[in-house]
Simulated scan of single mutants.
Amino acid sequence: MSEFAQAAARLAGQAGVVFGWTPDVFWAATPDELSTLVRALAGDEVAPPDRAAIARMMETFPDG
């Protein structure tokens, strides 16, 4: 198994234990999503999304 594969497997396992993520959720997540959770867990301040980010999310994921 490659060094990358070993590191990815460890990180997937840790995400499962700490965040309750299944492997499918881990592999579907973006690095930013994982980073945000890790920083929040570490007590680092996570800035809320600004208006432009919220508008992009609303456009990408409409309610109806």
Rank of each mutant, 00 (worst) to 15 (best):
P31T: 00
W27N: 06
L41A: 01
V18F: 13
D63Y: 13
A29D: 02
V25K: 14
A15H: 03
G43P: 05
R39W: 11
A47D: 00
E33F: 08
E3H: 14
A12K: 05
F26S: 13
L37Q: 04
G20E: 12
A42W: 07
A12C: 05
E3K: 14
M1H: 11
A28H: 13
I54Y: 00
E45I: 11
R10L: 07
A28E: 15
G20V: 10
V18E: 07
P31G: 05
R56A: 09
S2L: 04
D63V: 04
A7K: 12
E59T: 01
V38N: 06
V38M: 01
T60F: 14
W27K: 09
V18L: 15
E45G: 03
D50K: 13
T22P: 09
P48T: 03
D50L: 08
L41Y: 07
V18T: 15
R56P: 15
G13V: 01
F61H: 02
G64K: 13
L11V: 12
G43T: 04
A55L: 11
G13F: 04
R51Y: 12
P48L: 09
A28G: 10
A42T: 04
D32F: 12
A29I: 02
V38G: 06
R10F: 04
R56I: 02
Q14N: 13
V17S: 09
M1R: 03
T30S: 09
A29Q: 05
A15F: 12
T60A: 15
D32E: 07
A28I: 15
A12H: 00
R39N: 13
E33L: 00
D63A: 14
Q6I: 04
V17I: 05
L41V: 00
T22E: 11
D63N: 08
T22W: 08
L34A: 01
G64T: 09
D32L: 15
P31E: 15
T22R: 08
A12L: 01
T36I: 13
M58F: 02
E59S: 07
F26E: 07
D44H: 11
A42F: 01
L37C: 05
R51A: 15
R51G: 14
D24P: 04
D24R: 02
T60W: 15
D63S: 12
L41M: 06
R51N: 14
W21D: 07
D32Y: 05
L41W: 06
S35C: 05
L11H: 14
R51T: 14
Q14S: 07
A5H: 00
M57W: 14
L11C: 12
T36C: 07
F26W: 13
G43N: 08
R56T: 05
G64I: 12
V25H: 13
L37M: 07
A53P: 11
L41C: 06
F26M: 08
V25N: 15
S2K: 11
F61T: 05
E45R: 03
A42N: 03
A28R: 12
P62Y: 10
A9R: 14
R56S: 09
L34R: 00
G13Y: 04
E3T: 14
L41F: 07
E59Y: 03
A53V: 02
L34N: 03
M57E: 15
D32T: 00
R39F: 07
W21L: 06
R51S: 11
R39C: 03
F4L: 06
